[in-house]
Design a protein around this nucleic acid. Structure first.
Lengths: 227, 227
DNA sequence: ACGCATACTGACTAAAAGGTCAACGTATCG
DNA sequence: CGATACGTTGACCTTTTAGTCAGTATGCGT
């Protein structure tokens, strides 16, 4: 019975610990999230150098020194924000096999990326700023994480082409084309809205954008919009 | 003969003025260009806030105070750089009429924009940064200058479609698609090179990029690559 | 209730920013 | 040759920045 006792003890202990740390740990988690959200917003709007720690503190509703309590430096905070974004990035083209229909998969991917661009434009912009700067913080991450993902998708597209399911196009540039066309509406929102003479995107725009991009790209690689 | 005399006098006077101002005005012109070139480089690499006047001064090889002699403020310098870029921007799709072949015209435009992206990436990046910031300096310029240009091209594309020369696509999004796909290689050079596992673009890449983009977009709107 | 670790902050520092200015250098003209 | 306007600069100013720190407040376990 010793085993059982031990098990019960551990279970109780863990529960106690959890309850004990509830308030403190919850505060910790909450404030970190608050700071990260504020940082994402400010960094995306003003860039790394344009953003100041006091602005982020004000946005998050905490004292500036408190940010330094959770994050050692401005660089550290920026890096954390960026990695959080890229971590939640490459979804939307996952769990795909050669058997799937490229038209359906790619249409969904375009749709997914357009929605993300319209609804979370700041993430896209923050990523863009980092790339424009030459990816000083993200280049290691891209090398180790994005590259395998990219290779995998490259092979998938190539397999579809080999199977005669779509036209022969350079898979690299096809992926770049999908990224750039969809992210344009986040990164260049100011230009797009000014030229379209709008104040903000509407629900109907999301559909029109998705449709236009999908029409051009899918037909461009020998497919057609599904359904 | 008085008219002729006056004309000769003016001609001589202007020549004299030109000669007189040669050295000083040449220096003025030269240094302004030097400063503007340096500013373009530094602003594009580090953004508006990341760039400092002393860096630009160092890059241009002049004293910091001397920049303020030619340009009132950092904002003024930044604005001048931006407007110079956009002034030399919308070329490549000029002097086009409905009678022209859309395939030829659009292929040339894509080619032009790809070359510009590869050879002058800093201009594209500076523009991108300004747009990401919400176009605080360029929005007036876009409203008054880019919008008419955009409307004109919109009508041109619509006319081609009405004439049955190409598929029916939203002309706005078609233009956005061309811009985004071509500018991607400048703005996201870091990402593209990392994923392509290259140190820099080569001559062959320019052709491959142009070909891939043109293939997808032109076929996507019912055309094919000319010649 | 008390002691202790965690959470938090106002007030500070040193560095760097944009911008100014008086003084000096230099080409042009009477 | 002066006189004048333009070109140039080092030194300086104010403001803002990232980051620090001593000290306070707040739960938590005993």
């Amino acid at each position: 019975m010793r085993k059982n006792e031990l098990y019960e003890f551990i279970k109780l202990y863990l529960m106690t610990v959890k309850i004990k740390q509830n308030k403190k740990e919850a505060t910790r988690e909450r404030n970190q999230q608050l700071i990260l959200a504020a940082a994402e917003k400010i960094f995306a709007k003003l860039g790394y150098d344009g953003a100041s720690m006091s602005m982020i503190a004000k946005e998050a509703g905490v004292a500036k020194a408190n940010i330094h309590y959770y994050f050692n430096s401005k660089e550290c905070l920026y890096e954390t924000v960026l990695e959080n974004i890229v971590n939640s990035w490459n979804l939307g083209l996952e769990d795909v096999s050669v058997e799937d229909d490229p038209a359906v998969i790619l249409y969904k991917y375009i749709q997914y990326k357009v929605i993300l661009s319209i609804e979370q434009p700041m993430q896209s912009r923050l990523f863009a700023i980092e790339m424009i700067r030459g990816a000083p913080f993200l280049q290691d991450y891209i090398r180790t994480n994005s590259r395998p993902w990219f290779r995998e998708k490259h092979e998938l597209l190539q397999a579809w082409m080999d199977a005669g399911k779509m036209d022969q196009v350079d898979p690299n540039h096809l992926l770049f084309t999908i990224w750039s066309t969809t992210q344009y509406y986040a990164d260049f929102e100011a230009e797009a809205l000014l030229l379209l003479n709008k104040h903000e995107y509407e629900e109907i725009d999301v559909k029109a954008i998705t449709q236009s991009i999908a029409q051009i790209i899918l037909k461009g690689i020998g497919l057609s919009i599904p359904k």
